[in-house]
Nucleic acid binder design. Sequence first.
DNA 1: TTGTTAAAGTTAACAAAGTTAACATAAGAA
DNA 2: TTCTTATGTTAACTTTGTTAACTTTAACAA
Lengths: 201, 201
Amino acid sequence: MGKYHHGDVRNVLLQQAENILTEEGPSGLSLRRLARLTGVSEAAPYRHFDGKDGILAAVAIDAFERFAERLEDVAANIKKHEERIMALGAAYVHFAVDFPQHFRLIFGRERPPLDQYPELREAADNAFDVLQRAVTSVDRRADMTLNEAATAYNRALAAWSRAHGIAMLVIDGMIVPPADQELDDFVLGLLAEDLTAPDNT
Amino acid sequence: MGKYHHGDVRNVLLQQAENILTEEGPSGLSLRRLARLTGVSEAAPYRHFDGKDGILAAVAIDAFERFAERLEDVAANIKKHEERIMALGAAYVHFAVDFPQHFRLIFGRERPPLDQYPELREAADNAFDVLQRAVTSVDRRADMTLNEAATAYNRALAAWSRAHGIAMLVIDGMIVPPADQELDDFVLGLLAEDLTAPDNT
DNA sequence: TTGTTAAAGTTAACAAAGTTAACATAAGAA
DNA sequence: TTCTTATGTTAACTTTGTTAACTTTAACAA
């Protein structure tokens, strides 16, 4: 009775998986439910994916690519180094807020192990390379001292971890961005805080 | 045949749950397995906890308390305000590294909803209060202007999110602290980075 | 002491999930 | 055409969360 070989099952499954993820997160994504929604038998997904982790990996690859795209867009359009770092941080958080479940998937425990999915590892590495390059591009001069290079690296880590922390806490609802302010401005303000400076005004 | 009322089942279950969590994370924690390990029937845990979420909540409460204790210890022993913020950040990350699964539990999606477990909410609020107080204590003067208060708040958020980001990325293996440096020093260095400063040395 | 009751166990069952095995069909190569 | 492979299907097995129904123990009132 079922239509065999309608040729698009893999894509339909993936799209449905996206939908479920977006609405309910990885925990709501059950293979059987996915199959039912797609109108296919409950074992069919196994013909196209390596079990549940396989599907999650595929979705995560997609998410990484979208993430990297966004960051690249921002990085490409801003010439000044300091500004670019900041804008990247804002874009990082903005992505998390726009696609919280995707963000959680690519950074959380539900993400399938990178070692088992080479394409996933590639997608992840690519996304972080975009960050790394954009943050350190100006600083990576041939005549850098070791010390300077280390400092540039540290700045990259600092920028990254700050953005990441804000992103996590915001999508977890532990930090609530003020309603009367653009999200990006709020983030830029937090990124710019200097904890070593004396606290006047 | 089974010994009835040996009186300590709840505690034993909780301790075993701790063990499993520490070793395998929340996903490895199955109620039935827990019961088997404890040497009790598979439905017994339901007499002591409100299902799986109930057990997770109990473990999370414990984790929050340990977390808050650590932070309080640090905060109490450092008088200078700037130093205290930094030390708190380091302690925050240190806790995450020492108890990654606990940290993930109290901040991740596996944590049962706070609204359904008042004691859990209380434990969470308490932990964050410790942070908030320690970071803003000096700044919360009666004669503060609105602007000054807002700035103090922002500094608290900035410190928190930075520490949180570092913690997350380190326990996820995306940032690897240098082996030749104390973890605390590494964290302090990252916290102190000022992204707005020009990048010399 | 006895009888009652509530707490703390138990077994047995249900539904849902991931997964695999065994079988069926369609498409395309030989 | 026939054979092979990719793609489906159904049916089973295992584990898990959960609940219902029953049993035992401890505590306590009479």
